[in-house]
Nucleic acid binder design. Structure first.
Length: 602
RNA sequence: GGCCCCGUCGUCUAGCCUGGUCCAGGACACCACCCUUUCACGGUGGACACGCGGGUUCGAAUCCCGCCGGGGUCACCA
C-alpha cells in the first residue's frame, strides 16, 4: 500500500514494487539465426514491449569449439534485419534502415544497467565465484571420471534398459578430490542434485513435474574451465534480472535442473536467494515431413540432386555448370566435395553449397533468417508468418474472418502466453510466399524500388547492373504485383537482360501467334513497326494507346495484336503487360527485335 | 527403451477452460468458373478435419480413462 501511495505522490518515479519485465534471447553463435530462434526472439521481444519492459540479447559462447565471432555478428545482423531491436546487449550499428520493418534506433544494444558483458565467454570470473561458493558448501563437487569411464557406464545402463543418471559415488572422498583439484588437475565440477522432485508451472504447457530419480548430478563447469550452458544461463538470468524465460521446448527437460540450481544459489551482491523466473517453452518448428528444420536440410537437398544427376566428382559438377562461374565451389579443398557426397553428417561451406546449387539447378530450402533474406523475402512477411506459427490473436478482422495479417505493433499490443499453442507446427513455405506476395503488393512503387535496390545490391548484382533501378521504374507498376519475392524481378525482366540478337524463339508460340492464318501475325508486326517508330513518347501509356488505336482501326482483337508483338520482342507468349515490356526495352531495342523476328522467322 | 510434452481439413489454426448456438469457422495450398492482350492479380463457388475405443451426460470436438500416433530429451553441446 505504501508503495502505491508513493507512486501516486511521486508520479515520475517507477513503482518499485513490481520489477519491470525483462526477457532475453540467448543464442549460441554457431551459425546464422535459425527461423525457429527468430520466432523465440520475436515472442521475447513482443512480451517485453507489451509490458514496457526490456529485451536483452546475450551471446552464449561457452562452447569454445563451436562458437565463432562471425556467427555472433551474423545473428545480430539477422535480428536487426527483422526489426527485433534489443534494448540491452552487444552494440550494433544498423545500416540500411530502409530494408527493415520498424523505424529504428541506428544503434542497438548497450549496457545501461551495467550488467554486461553480454558475451558469456567474458564472464568466466563471475561464474567461478559462484562455483567456488557452491563447492565450499559441498553443493557442487569436482569429479574425476574420464569420458571413457562415463561412456562405459552409459552403455551398461543402456544394455540394462535403465536411464543413466550420474550420482556421486558412495565412497566419494571429498578431501582427496578437493586436493586434486586444488593441485590444478583439470576436472569438471558437478552440481549435487537434491533428492527431491521438482515442479514448476510453464506459462504455455502448464504444470510440469520431474521426479528426483530422473535428475542427475550434472556438470556445471567443464574441464576446460568454461561453465556449461546450464550454469551460465542461471547465473546470468539472475544477474541480469530476467523475469521471463522463453525458449525452445528442447530445454523443457533442463528446466528442473536450472530451478534446482536457482534454489541453491544466493546472489552475492544482494545477498538474496536467486529469483525464479517464469518459464514459457515454445514448440519446435518442423519440416513438412516432420523432420526437424535443420541447416543440414540444405546439404541434404543438394546431395539428393547430385544422386539424381549421377554426380560423383567435382568434374561432373563443372560439366553441369557449363560457363557459370563457381568461385567458392572451386575453392574447396581437393576431395572435400567427394567426401561430402558420401557423408550425410557433413556440411559444405555455405557459399560453395550455393555455387553447387546453381550449377546443378536445385533450390535450397531456406532455414536460417538470412536464407529468407537472400531469397527475397520481406522482414514484415517473415515476422507475420512466424508469429502465426504457434500464436494467434483469436480475433476477427473487420471482414468477419479470423485475423491473420498483422504487423509487429499489433503483435506487441496483443501478445500473451495463453494464446501460444502447445502442439508442434510445420513450416509451410507456400503460406509464407503468399504473405510475402501480399507484403510486396502493399509497398508503394518507391518503397518497392528502394527495397529491391538494397536487396539486389547484395544478392542480384547482375540484374541491378543490366536493367538497373531507373529502367525498372518504368515498369514497376506492372512488375510489383507479380513478384512473390524480390528475387522474382529477375525472371520477370529476364527478357530485357539478353542482347537483342540473342534471345531464343519458342517454336510453339511462333507457330501459334505468328505463322498461323498465313502469317497474319507478321502482317501485324509490319504494320506496327512504323507506328512505333513514329510514336512521340515511348512510354507505357503511349504504347498502350497506340495498340488500342490500332485494334480499333483494323478491327482485330487485342489478342491478335498483342501476342504477335510479345512473341517478337521476347521470344515467347509470356511477359509483363505489353506496354511495360516494350517500354523497358526502349524504342531501339523493340524495333530491332521486331525486325529480327520478321527476318528470322517469316 | 526411461522420462517429459503434444494430437481439429494436406498445412497453420479458431472453437475446448465455462459441454448444446459446430452435420465444426478462417487462412494457405488445391479444383472449377468469371474477369483478362499472355502470365499474374482480383472475384465467385467447390472439395477437404474433430486419431481410435470406452465412459460421464438428455446432449461431447469440448469432461474422465485407456489405446494408438507424433515430437522432445537422456553430453565435460546449447
Amino acid at each position: 500500500m505504501t508503495t502505491c501511495l508513493h507512486a501516486l505522490s511521486l508520479p515520475f518515479l517507477p513503482m518499485p514494487s513490481s520489477p519491470p519485465v525483462i526477457t532475453r534471447f540467448a543464442p549460441s553463435p554457431t551459425g546464422h539465426l535459425h527461423i525457429g530462434g527468430a520466432r523465440t526472439a520475436l515472442f521475447c521481444w513482443a512480451y517485453a514491449k507489451r509490458h514496457n519492459g526490456s529485451f536483452l540479447l546475450r551471446i552464449e559462447d561457452t562452447d569454445q569449439k563451436r562458437s565463432s565471432e562471425a556467427a555472433s555478428r551474423g545473428i545480430l545482423e539477422d535480428l536487426a534485419w527483422l526489426g527485433i531491436d534489443w534494448d540491452e546487449g552487444p552494440v550494433f550499428k544498423r545500416e540500411n534502415a530502409d530494408g527493415t520493418v520498424n523505424t529504428p534506433p541506428t544503434t542497438l544494444g548497450g549496457n545501461p544497467r551495467e550488467i554486461g558483458s553480454f558475451y558469456q565467454s567474458e564472464r568466466r570470473d563471475i561464474y567461478d565465484t559462484y562455483i567456488n561458493w557452491l563447492v565450499e558448501r559441498d553443493l557442487a563437487y569436482p569429479a574425476f571420471d574420464t569420458p571413457e569411464e562415463l561412456t562405459v557406464r552409459r552403455q551398461l545402463a543402456e544394455k540394462e534398459k535403465r536411464t543413466f543418471v550420474y550420482r556421486r559415488a558412495a565412497d566419494y572422498n571429498r578431501d582427496a578430490v578437493l586436493s586434486r583439484m586444488n593441485a590444478g588437475e583439470p576436472c569438471p565440477i558437478r552440481f549435487k542434485m537434491p533428492g527431491t522432485p521438482i515442479s514448476f508451472t510453464d506459462e504455455v504447457l502448464g504444470e510440469i513435474t520431474v521426479s528426483a530419480d530422473e535428475l542427475d548430478d550434472f556438470v556445471i563447469r567443464k574441464a576446460d574451465g568454461f561453465p556449461t550452458y546450464h550454469f551460465a544461463v542461471v547465473i546470468d538470468d539472475e544477474l541480469m534480472g530476467t523475469t521471463h524465460i522463453m525458449r525452445g521446448q528442447e530445454h523443457l527437460n533442463n528446466t528442473p535442473r536450472h530451478i534446482a540450481l536457482m534454489k541453491a544459489l544466493v546472489n552475492q551482491t544482494t545477498n538474496q536467494p536467486f529469483r525464479i523466473p517464469k518459464f514459457a517453452h515454445l514448440t519446435v518448428i518442423a519440416n513438412q515431413d516432420n523432420s526437424k528444420m535443420s541447416k543440414r536440410d540444405r546439404d541434404k537437398a543438394a546431395r539428393a540432386k547430385c544422386r539424381e544427376l549421377n554426380i560423383k566428382a567435382v568434374t561432373d559438377v563443372s560439366a553441369k555448370a557449363g560457363t557459370k562461374p563457381l568461385p567458392h565451389f572451386d575453392a574447396l579443398p581437393p576431395g572435400d566435395f567427394e567426401q561430402w557426397l558420401g557423408d550425410k553428417t557433413r556440411q559444405l561451406e555455405t557459399h560453395a553449397l550455393e555455387d553447387l546449387a546453381t550449377a546443378i539447378g536445385v533450390e535450397l530450402p531456406e532455414i536460417a533468417v538470412d536464407d529468407f533474406r537472400r531469397s527475397g523475402y520481406l522482414p514484415e512477411a517473415v515476422l507475420n508468418y512466424i508469429a502465426l506459427l504457434g500464436w494467434n490473436p483469436g480475433e476477427k478482422g473487420p471482414d468477419g474472418k479470423d485475423l491473420e495479417r498483422f504487423d509487429t505493433a499489433y503483435l506487441v499490443e496483443k501478445f500473451s502466453f495463453d494464446r501460444v499453442g502447445k502442439s508442434a507446427s510445420k513450416f509451410d513455405r507456400a503460406k509464407l510466399i503468399a504473405f510475402n506476395q501480399d507484403a510486396i503488393a502493399k509497398l508503394t512503387d518507391d518503397q518497392f524500388l528502394s527495397r529491391w535496390e538494397i536487396w539486389a545490391t547484395r544478392d542480384d548484382r547482375e540484374t541491378l547492373g543490366r536493367v538497373g533501378v531507373s529502367r525498372l521504374r518504368l515498369v514497376v507498376g506492372a512488375i510489383k504485383g507479380r513478384c512473390r519475392t524480390l528475387k522474382d524481378v529477375r525472371s520477370l525482366v529476364s527478357f530485357a537482360m539478353i542482347d537483342d540478337g540473342a534471345y531464343a524463339f519458342n517454336a510453339k508460340d511462333v507457330e501459334k501467334h505468328l505463322k498461323a492464318d498465313d502469317g497474319a501475325g507478321f502482317e501485324t508486326l509490319r504494320a506496327l513497326a512504323p507506328k512505333l517508330q513514329a510514336l512521340p513518347a515511348f512510354d507505357v501509356a503511349s504504347i498502350d494507346a497506340l495498340l488500342d488505336a490500332h485494334a480499333t482501326q483494323t478491327g482485330l482483337g487485342m489478342g491478335k495484336i498483342a501476342q504477335p508483338l510479345r512473341v517478337a520482342v521476347t521470344g515467347a507468349a509470356v511477359s509483363p503487360p505489353l506496354g511495360a515490356t516494350l517500354a523497358i526495352l526502349g524504342r531501339d531495342s523493340s524495333l530491332a527485335r521486331i525486325r529480327r523476328c520478321i527476318d528470322a522467322q517469316a
